[in-house]
């Protein structure tokens, strides 16, 4: 072996190289589709849909009122899921809040006694304008993109700001 030209591959080195290359080829050919499969849902655009919430003429001023809206679940299933929206009217101004807490996305509820939105999971508090005023939530309560047609409210399955 020693008298061989060191610049040339020995039979043994060739064997080692061949094994490693074969392994790498298999790993790459398997890996690319698997990683692509895993992250592909992240690049899918969610379809924007408008849904009717209902007539908000009866919503009292300064008191959040809960409505339920059905949105498509947006993958293969045709089933829809109900989401809760809180409609808050203050004068002419209408805000449509989601009930998703910005801390851990638990379901927020309006507590009349506290006059605040309370997240029961970790005690997050939001005031009537959705500002995070107590507990751990880092951001204000998310608002839905909405429009009104007379007194009929429509919302889109998107928030005005990312959470």
């Amino acid at each position: 072996m020693g008298h061989r030209d060191p610049r040339r591959l020995s039979r043994r080195q060739f064997g080692v190289l061949g094994t490693q290359v074969s392994g790498a080829v298999i790993a790459v050919l398997l890996g690319i589709p698997i990683v692509g499969f895993l992250i592909s849902p992240l690049f899918r655009q969610q379809q924007a849909v408008w849904r009717k919430v209902g007539d908000i003429a009866g919503v009292p001023d300064g008191e959040p009122t809960k409505f339920e809206v059905a949105f498509p679940q947006d993958v293969w299933t045709t089933a829809e899921e109900n989401l809760a929206v809180y409609v808050v009217k203050t004068g002419d101004n209408t805000k449509v809040f989601s009930n998703v807490c910005t801390h851990m996305q638990c379901p927020v509820r309006w507590e009349t006694a506290l006059h605040q939105f309370l997240c029961p999971c970790h005690g997050g508090l939001y005031d009537i304008n959705g500002a995070n005023v107590g507990g751990p939530p880092p951001k204000p309560l998310p608002q839905y993109v909405h429009r009104t047609d007379g007194t009929t409210l429509f919302v889109q399955n998107r928030f005005t700001e990312e959470i």
Partner: peptide, 9 residues
């Protein structure tokens, strides 16, 4: 039920 406002997780 994602729309719940009464359930406490």
């Amino acid at each position: 039920d994602p729309a719940t406002t009464s359930y406490t997780p």
